[in-house]
Design a protein around this nucleic acid. Structure first.
Lengths: 216, 216
DNA sequence: TTGTATTTTTAGACAAGCCTAAAAATTAAT
DNA sequence: ATTAATTTTTAGGCTTGTCTAAAAATACAA
């Protein structure tokens, strides 16, 4: 139905739309590691296919159709990630690249059966919600640890950085999905956060605290 | 590593090599539903990459490297077909197209884990052997029913035509992998074959007998 | 508000992979 | 052994998706 490139653009635009209403050419170029001129080309094509709203120099947003397509790609990506971790026992930091390829397998029937096979999971291995076959899902209501008050207490429930390096670090510190933590102190000097977890204290940098999400 | 088009050409050449040592441009064009001129283009590229032996007007054969790549694609195809039938409960006539897409997912680690997850199956749902992670597998030693003698008796073990139409027909007649049949008679007029299966007689056309393989 | 910096678009080019039409090589037939 | 038919290759062109370089539009700053 859609080409690989088209799907990747729609996914990128969807992701960037989380942050700001309208997405700029340069943002898309950065996200896809391509050049702004290539992006402009593709935006013209996507607009022609009614997948995005686009007027020159004004940035873009997804149309309803475009958003449906994007959500579907995300559904496929997250279901395959779940499969790779739960059934094939990959680690959470190993699955992103594979899922990037697998998300483009087009059969809807396949994805629905995969969903059923795994018992209709609602979150992927990184805590992100998995849209159902209708495209419905509730956005996570999570906060970066860096933004909560001292003495706040919550469950680690997601990450903002999906890079292998970050996930491996978390794994090593046992800062994994489901763990209960309390924020003990935020050191003013460099915003290092002191956590309590399993009755032990643990320091994490401002960057880590920024990318680690908790449910209060 | 290799593009989609390259992989499809290698697979086609491998398949056609089963029949004749050297494969012609036109055969490849027919197999891939493309034009001879396009094939010539690609053959030049594949030869440059040392994946095939090619001299103008002489047809092609796979190099050792080319064959390794082709066998690997076939391994991936057949493992995904097995997965789709055994785990997601698709029917054997529904999986070919999906597997055509899935076979291009590149991770070797993924395929090896999938193999393990399914218990290292040795045959796909159509009876074709699945190469192991080293690329080793024994070719089926099967005969089309049309070629065996009257009173011969054997187990249905494979098909030569993988089309949905043919597989659905077989399913309807219960002519499925593993069934024991005896050839009762070959009617001289049109080579219709009369089989006995489950103590019942069954007539199949010359075409069907040609595409249905048994182990004696 | 006028000039400068940044962002975005246009123009032109390129590789991959396909096509048609025509030329060249091979094969088959008399 | 020629001629005819077939197969294969070449030549030139098209689309998709990318690039660089330059022009145009917008945003920012004094």
């Amino acid at each position: 139905m859609y080409t690989l490139a088209e799907e990747n653009y729609l996914k990128a635009i969807y992701k960037l739309s989380m942050i700001a209403e309208n997405v700029s050419t340069n943002q898309i170029a950065a996200e896809l590691a391509t050049k702004a001129s290539s992006v402009t080309d593709m935006l013209r094509k996507l607009a022609e296919k009614l997948l995005i709203n686009y007027t020159r120099y004004q940035g873009v947003s997804l149309t309803q159709t475009g958003e449906k397509v994007a959500v579907n790609i995300i559904r496929r990506h997250r279901l395959w990630e779940f499969f790779l971790v739960e059934k094939l026992h990959f680690k959470w930091d190993e699955v992103h690249e594979m899922a990037e390829e697998m998300e483009h397998i087009s059969s809807t029937e396949l994805i629905d059966r995969l969903d059923e096979f795994m018992g209709f999971p609602t979150r992927d291995p990184h805590g992100d919600p998995i849209p159902d076959s209708q495209g419905n899902f509730k956005q996570n209501d999570l906060k970066p640890i860096s933004t909560v008050d001292v003495n706040a207490c919550g469950i680690i429930s997601g990450v903002r950085d999906h890079s292998s390096a970050f996930l491996q670090y978390l794994e090593k510190q046992s800062l994994t999905i489901g763990k209960k933590i309390t924020v003990k102190e935020i050191i003013a000097y460099d915003n290092t956060v002191v956590l309590q977890m399993d009755n032990k204290d643990l320091q994490i940098s401002r960057d880590v605290a920024n990318n680690l999400l908790i449910a209060l």
